[in-house]
Measured scan of single mutants.
Amino acid sequence: TLFEALYDYEARTEDDLSFHKGEKFQILNSSEGDWWEARSLTTGETGYIPSIYLAPV
């Protein structure tokens, strides 16, 4: 399942991933609670993103 960003997000740590509204992600690991490891389909970068900023596509 792909997810789309509902809002912009600016990374706060080196493990976080910055993204823009409308960016799409492949989720790599969603077992860490509210922060999911994801790969951006726009940039190819991976990192942790807040799941509350996402909606399934």
Rank of each mutant, 00 (worst) to 15 (best):
T1E: 12
T1H: 12
T1S: 11
L2D: 04
L2Y: 11
L2S: 04
L2C: 09
F3H: 05
F3E: 00
E4Y: 14
E4C: 08
A5L: 06
A5T: 03
L6K: 08
L6M: 11
Y7F: 12
Y7Q: 11
Y7R: 09
D8K: 04
D8S: 09
D8A: 07
Y9K: 04
Y9S: 03
Y9G: 04
E10C: 12
E10K: 11
E10G: 06
E10T: 13
E10V: 13
A11W: 02
A11D: 02
A11E: 03
R12Q: 15
T13L: 11
T13R: 15
E14F: 09
E14H: 13
E14K: 13
E14W: 08
E14N: 12
D15R: 15
D15A: 14
D15G: 15
D16S: 14
L17P: 02
L17E: 01
L17M: 15
L17G: 01
S18W: 03
S18N: 06
S18I: 02
S18P: 06
S18G: 08
F19H: 01
F19D: 00
F19V: 06
F19Q: 00
H20M: 11
H20F: 12
H20Q: 11
H20V: 13
H20P: 05
H20I: 12
K21M: 08
K21E: 05
E23P: 00
K24H: 11
F25L: 05
F25H: 00
F25V: 02
F25C: 01
Q26S: 07
I27S: 01
I27H: 01
I27K: 04
I27N: 01
L28M: 08
L28G: 02
N29S: 11
N29F: 07
N29H: 08
S30T: 13
S30K: 13
S30D: 13
S30F: 15
S31D: 13
S31F: 10
E32S: 14
E32W: 10
E32M: 14
G33F: 09
G33K: 14
W35M: 12
W35G: 03
W35T: 07
W36Y: 06
W36P: 01
W36N: 01
E37K: 11
E37M: 15
E37I: 15
E37S: 07
A38G: 09
R39N: 04
S40G: 02
S40M: 05
S40D: 02
S40A: 06
S40I: 05
S40R: 13
L41K: 04
L41A: 05
T42Y: 09
T42F: 09
T42D: 11
T42C: 11
T43C: 03
T43V: 01
G44N: 08
G44K: 05
G44R: 04
E45L: 15
E45T: 08
E45F: 10
T46K: 10
T46P: 01
G47F: 06
G47V: 05
G47C: 03
G47W: 04
G47K: 03
Y48P: 02
Y48S: 07
Y48A: 05
I49K: 00
I49T: 02
I49R: 00
I49Q: 00
P50R: 12
S51M: 09
I52E: 14
I52A: 15
Y53V: 09
Y53G: 08
Y53D: 04
Y53K: 07
Y53I: 09
L54R: 00
L54C: 04
L54F: 10
L54D: 01
A55Q: 14
A55I: 13
P56F: 06
